[in-house]
Amino acid sequence: MASQGTKRSYEQMETDGERQNATEIRASVGKMIDGIGRFYIQMCTELKLSDYEGRLIQNSLTIERMVLSAFDERRNKYLEEHPSAGKDPKKTGGPIYKRVDRKWMRELVLYDKEEIRRIWRQANNGDDATAGLTHMMIWHSNLNDTTYQRTRALVRTGMDPRMCSLMQGSTLPRRSGAAGAAVKGVGTMVMELIRMIKRGINDRNFWRGENGRKTRSAYERMCNILKGKFQTAAQRAMMDQVRESRNPGNAEIEDLIFLARSALILRGSVAHKSCLPACVYGPAVASGYDFEKEGYSLVGIDPFKLLQNSQVYSLIRPNENPAHKSQLVWMACNSAAFEDLRVLSFIRGTKVSPRGKLSTRGVQIASNENMDAMESSTLELRSRYWAIRTRSGGNTNQQRASAGQISVQPAFSVQRNLPFDKPTIMAAFTGNTEGRTSDMRAEIIRMMEGAKPEEMSFQGRGVFELSDERAANPIVPSFDMSNEGSYFFGDNAEEYDN
């Protein structure tokens, strides 16, 4: 993207840094990872977990959730003011799984939030270390993106479920800051804005008074975040219109849905970061690795190297396929839920299948599930090659597409044709070009129609051997075009429920 120079890199967003050079960025990201790792080690000690239990991804998720809940100030305040039966607002906890007599047992633990905050700050040299908290939120978000298709949420806001490739980060909490905003897809931002506008339509006082002023500035800020994701002048001009509207209503909703559809071809720039579970960072720190000293990046080879040398386990339900569970977590670790499966298959070195073909449910185990038949197995999170994460949407291309997802959002900077089903997408653009945004709409449609099938995206960008740390010898991959490109292809993934 041309304006790259004016933006802070995501590592800076990730670490609240002012302008830093590459070495400083690597050190501050490393410091953040160190903090998460030290916190995780301490929690495993508190909970008396064995090494194996500490490497269980379900335990990692519970521990991450506990610290996120302990620092969720708004919710904590709300819980104190609106006490609900049987919930102690000062405590947080969740299921911890232990191996007892050759069987997995679930144990519900409860801790004072104050105590968890103390352990977290102690692991982070006394700081609140917001960057580390956001990092864990993005890992949870990436896992949700890989596990669930947001059909219901899309339909509720009037969008087409086939636009799911635009929904990265749709389950990120509001408090995820600049680093969170960077990884949100165009569809996620559109959905947040539509929800806001709908509230304004239904509630006369939404934009009024002292609160209304705050609401208005939040609305304009979200519009600017979305505008910054678009790469064409016409899309940005249309966002200006939406932002400046005196009284946002149905016309703005129409414009936003139009823009979301246009992003299936004229893709937005959305950041991709490899955020790993805390149970990967903990053992690495415990083994003596100093992330701050060595430096770390979320968008280069580092996460690949770390996963190459990590042992992570997962509980497996009786009829689940461990290899499929591994694929789910591998995609989440690489922030690749909406990437082209052919690119992923090449990088991973084994075939990556669409969601609907995987015999696996989510990673988390519900409290009512029976533990008797639970097994555990090693997650295979290694890769054959590594590639640089991208934040450009890439230019655009036609490809055989599917009944489910009709476009992709690249996660890796790797040369390819970008699949999208042009006739299906263009069919949504018939007729409606009147109104105050008509010239911009016409211009956007013209650009979409001009998108050429034979153009290559990320020209000359390749993948790298894991021994090639400096990215000196790019390998331009070859793809098996007979395979499906979309992950949520004609899909039956479970729906995400809060």
Rank of each mutant, 00 (worst) to 15 (best):
Q4S: 00
G5Q: 09
T6E: 11
Y10V: 00
E11P: 04
M13Y: 00
T15Q: 10
D16H: 05
E18L: 00
R19F: 04
Q20H: 04
Q20F: 09
A22K: 15
T23Y: 01
A27G: 06
R38Y: 13
R38F: 10
R38T: 00
F39V: 14
F39S: 05
Y40D: 05
I41T: 15
T45S: 04
T45E: 09
K48A: 03
L49H: 14
S50K: 01
E53G: 14
R55I: 07
L56K: 07
S60K: 04
L61P: 06
R65L: 06
R65M: 10
M66W: 10
V67A: 03
S69C: 04
A70M: 04
D72N: 14
R74I: 04
K77E: 05
K77T: 14
E81R: 00
H82T: 01
A85Q: 00
D88S: 02
D88P: 05
K90S: 02
K90N: 01
G93E: 13
G94T: 04
R99H: 14
V100Y: 00
V100W: 10
V100A: 14
R102Q: 15
E107G: 07
L108P: 05
L110M: 10
Y111G: 12
E114V: 12
E114Q: 00
Q122R: 02
D128A: 00
A129W: 09
T130R: 07
G132F: 11
L133H: 08
T134W: 10
M137C: 13
M137L: 02
N142T: 13
T147C: 04
Y148K: 11
Q149V: 14
R150V: 09
M163D: 03
S165E: 08
M167C: 03
Q168W: 07
A178N: 06
A182R: 05
A182S: 03
K184Y: 08
G185K: 08
V186F: 03
T188C: 03
M191W: 10
M191E: 13
E192G: 15
L193T: 06
L193S: 13
L193P: 13
R199S: 02
R204C: 01
K214M: 08
R216H: 03
S217T: 02
S217F: 04
A218Q: 09
M222Y: 15
C223E: 12
L226P: 07
L226R: 14
K227D: 11
Q231C: 05
Q231K: 06
T232F: 07
A234H: 12
A234L: 09
M238I: 02
M239D: 04
M239L: 01
Q241Y: 13
E244L: 07
S245C: 12
R246D: 07
P248Q: 13
N250V: 03
A251F: 13
I257F: 01
F258Y: 06
F258Q: 07
S262W: 10
L264V: 12
L266S: 14
R267N: 13
R267V: 08
R267C: 12
S269Y: 07
S269M: 10
C275H: 10
P277Q: 10
P277V: 06
P277Y: 10
A278D: 05
C279G: 12
Y281V: 09
S287N: 14
S287I: 05
G288D: 12
F291I: 13
K293E: 02
E294C: 00
G295L: 10
Q308K: 05
Q308G: 05
S310M: 04
V312S: 06
Y313S: 02
I316Y: 10
P318M: 03
N319G: 14
N321F: 08
H324Y: 14
V329M: 04
V329K: 14
M331Y: 05
A332S: 05
F338V: 01
L341T: 12
V343L: 12
V343E: 06
S345I: 03
I347G: 13
R348F: 12
R348A: 06
T350I: 07
T350W: 05
R355D: 10
K357N: 09
L358S: 11
L358P: 13
T360F: 10
G362S: 08
G362F: 11
G362V: 12
Q364K: 03
E369F: 11
E369Y: 05
N370P: 13
N370C: 00
D372K: 06
M374E: 10
E375W: 07
S377T: 02
S383D: 07
R384P: 05
R384W: 14
W386G: 13
T390W: 10
S392M: 08
S392G: 08
N395V: 04
N397I: 02
Q398R: 14
Q399L: 07
R400N: 12
R400P: 13
V408L: 05
Q409Y: 00
A411I: 07
A411E: 03
V414L: 06
V414I: 05
V414Y: 10
V414R: 04
D421F: 01
P423H: 05
P423V: 03
I425Q: 11
M426Q: 01
F429T: 02
T430A: 12
G431R: 12
T433N: 05
T433C: 00
E434M: 00
M440L: 12
R446G: 07
M447I: 12
M447D: 06
G450I: 01
A451N: 08
S457C: 02
S457R: 12
F458P: 13
F458Y: 12
E469W: 02
R470D: 11
P477S: 14
P477C: 11
P477G: 11
F479G: 01
M481K: 12
S482T: 04
G485D: 06
F489E: 10
G490C: 11
N492Y: 15
N492K: 15
A493P: 05
N498L: 01
